[in-house]
Nucleic acid binder design. Structure first.
Lengths: 243, 243
DNA sequence: CGCGACCTTGAAGAACGTCAATGGTCGTGG
DNA sequence: CCACGACCATTGACGTTCTTCAAGGTCGCG
């Protein structure tokens, strides 16, 4: 596939250039970060809840999620993380985390020691700012989800998530032509949207019958983008994507 | 204890000392921030959604909330802000906001120009870090709410919020003896918890009958803290309060 | 006294969950 | 190549939670 002029940190560079232009020196400093790559299978816990990690996890490939477990086997997914994301960046500043980080698909991540990142941010305050902004965007997405869980119906919530994922994936070259790979089980989608997998299934079925979208074999196809945006009350501003 | 500086910025100093000890110079720098105080009535919009403010709002007194409006008159409250909080701190780093900021009670706020805050953070990197951490704690609270809206029943959610507010208010001297002023209408509580005011009412009634708590005349009294913690699945770690 | 804002309560219905059974797909091993 | 099992999607019947609608009731305040 790739002609591989792409070093492992290319995704991180792309993420950060969303917020500022990076100088050659800054890009090189990112490339030179010591990356301990790790391949994980679906379902693997990368950072267990309650731990105090000493390294940050950069997603190179695959889908990760942050989640919390409750009694009676309940799970809520707090965030979906795609290549280029640093899901546990906040642990650079607050030691312990209350949520877990797990792979939803086969995935590869790069583990970067906190000290290396700290050295990077003291050397390049521009990068420090850019990293903070990624945290703010994560928080903005979380707010959008909060609104959905609190005040939107299953139908609206699902439409909203499908729209969000399309734009986020398109921004990293993993979606185009109103179509993308959605490698999540309906159970994972349910834990994301605060529903049951049964109801997720019925909702997708209904949306297919309305000719909004199709989900088959892990591929999601949007048939009517405008109608979907409308159905989800979707306004992409919060993603802070270029354009 | 402290000789209690009762200047307007005392609340901000207290908030920040949760995360680091402040030197005399740092405290004085905070006191010297130009504060434009403003008295607002309940329901007043302080920062309308979609605007790009040039100053931050510090809560001196009263309750504020960040919220989003949806079609059909729906509202979701994203955060409750108490004295000492800086609800729109993130606008120091991301220009526009997608949510609104409003007073829920009569309240006084201090408006601090962004440039003054930026000067403060460049002069005292320690304060910059402390301010960032308040944002991370806000995000942690938001995650807890997300879990509640997604996966907890009305009963659990309500218990959880009552516990959270007790600890947050106690930390700023506004709660003690398992009792505090809760000056929110049931409609506001409903918009916080993703329910209807009718159901909020029934939930509180049920909890009173279980001898968990009483809400009367704007005063909430917790009769059985342990049982309430249990009912809400409440674990206070995410608040990052001392002790 | 009367009005507005809020709380309270009942009855009916919609949205979503639970339980359970069936079937599809894919990888693995015989 | 087929059989099997694991995992996931799908569907139906039924239950629960929460909402909606509507009607008082309470309280403070002009």
């Amino acid at each position: 596939m790739h002609p591989e002029p792409l070093h492992a940190m290319a995704g991180l560079v792309r993420t950060l250039t969303r917020f500022t232009d990076l100088t050659q020196a800054e890009q090189r400093a990112i490339q030179d970060l010591p990356a301990r790559p790790r391949l994980v299978g679906p379902g693997v816990d990368i950072v267990p809840a309650g731990s105090a990690p000493v390294q940050c996890c950069l997603v190179l490939d695959g889908w990760l999620c942050r989640y919390r477990l409750l009694s009676a086997g309940r799970r809520q997914i707090l965030a979906l993380h795609l290549p280029g994301d640093v899901p546990d960046l906040q642990n650079l500043h607050l030691p312990t985390r209350d949520d877990g980080l797990a792979a939803l698909t086969k995935a590869t991540v790069a583990l970067i020691p906190h000290e290396s990142l700290r050295a990077l941010t003291t050397a390049f305050s521009n990068l420090a700012t850019a990293l903070w902004r990624t945290l703010l965007v994560d928080a903005a997405i979380q707010r959008a989800w909060l609104v959905g869980l609190g005040r939107r119906s299953a139908h609206e919530r699902t439409a909203h998530l499908v729209c969000e994922l399309y734009l986020r994936l398109a921004a990293i070259g993993l979606a185009a032509d109103h179509r993308y790979r959605l490698p999540l089980t309906q159970a994972a989608l349910a834990d994301t949207l605060g529903l049951t997998s049964v109801h997720i299934n019925r909702t997708f079925t209904a949306m297919r019958e309305q000719n909004l979208l199709t989900l088959r074999g892990g591929v999601l196809t949007i048939h009517d983008w405008d109608a979907l945006v409308q159905a989800g009350g979707f306004d992409p501003g919060y993603l802070h994507l270029p354009r």
